[in-house]
Amino acid sequence: MSTHVASVRLLLTIFVMLLALTATTVAVAYFDFGRVNIVVALSIAAFKSALVVLYFMHVRYGSRLTWVFAGAGFLWLVLLLVFTFGDYLSRPWESVTAW
């Protein structure tokens, strides 16, 4: 059988990294970086998600078609957000004061 079996050591490593990143994102949230706070928070969340998707969800070892499917979900999410904000940010009569 060609199924990939993840090693316990790898899964535990990912688990510890996820916990460490959670502690990090909580800690940095108490510092005021202005508009950078949200960027840091979302970057850490994106990195944590990538770890979960690649290793816990086995996409790292998946077929190319699996990559295409997972990537398509991400791509459509980006389209949704970009077009939504392309609309709202280009409305001069709506007061967008911050992200």
Binding site: T66, G73, W76, L77, L80, T84, E94, S95, T97, W99
Partner: peptide
Amino acid sequence: LGMWLFLITEIMFFGGLFAAYAVYRSTHP
């Protein structure tokens, strides 16, 4: 692949909520 197809619909479902959240956060920070 079938499961991922279902998960894509889930991404779009929660994605809509996140997009709405982001719009109102931008207008009422």
